[in-house]
Write a protein that binds this DNA or RNA. Structure first.
Lengths: 108, 108
DNA sequence: GTTGTATGACGCAAATATACGACACATTCG
DNA sequence: CGAATGTGTCGTATATTTGCGTCATACAAC
């Protein structure tokens, strides 16, 4: 994506982009919804629910973990995944900044 | 991105993905921040603020408009862009669903 | 009419994302 | 120990995104 000029953007902006990118794919949204609904976190369960290969699900889980939206803890043979509220809060806070600073009748 | 299996995902999920994708790029976040800060909406101004070509900015604006995060109205010679709070509210509402349904101590 | 400004559309090349199969590793059970 | 199960990683093919140059259009000023 030609991120040569990525350095010119604020860390703040990149942080938002990172969190948003984690949600920018229906598969990841589905994973999060499943986690939120079931609450249980076994990777295999997610792979069974979604029409995706285990490798793909594992990859998505990794990205979500990297973005800070989920946590993963090893639990013997299985791995436990669950939602990390901090990441959401962070994103929601950032989003709030756009709307609160908004000046409604400036021109439109 | 091999979206052959896209049909299996909920419209709800795809809507979130669409909104999130609009925020998944630092350039677009920068555009939105600029709009939120200045409140004025001339496309050329945005192109001057960012280290991107006008064509690129125009493209980003188009994507943001398609996602429903900004509005664009023609105003004589110039085009007026401003933030559309509805899109944000929609996204924030969706995000809230994840955290509220969260069962904290289910396994982690 | 001609020039300059403001915007958007088309097409291209490079970078990235996505999905998958196959393999390697750890743990549990017989 | 050997088999079975659950996970993660690696390499690869395809689809998409991204950024830019270039061109076409619309309007105002001279």
């Amino acid at each position: 994506m030609t991120f040569a000029k990525l350095a010119v953007f604020t860390e703040h902006q990149q942080q938002i982009a990172k969190l948003a990118k984690a949600l920018s794919h229906p598969a990841r949204v589905a994973i999060l919804e499943h986690l939120a609904k079931v609450g249980v976190c076994i990777s295999g369960d997610i792979a069974n629910e979604l029409p995706l290969a285990r490798a793909t699900v594992s990859q998505h889980l990794q990205e979500l973990k990297a973005a800070g939206l989920i946590k993963g803890t090893i639990e013997g043979q299985t791995v436990c995944y669950c939602i990390d509220p901090e990441g959401y809060q962070q994103l929601i806070d950032h989003l709030g900044g756009f709307t609160t600073n908004n000046k409604p009748t400036s021109c439109c």
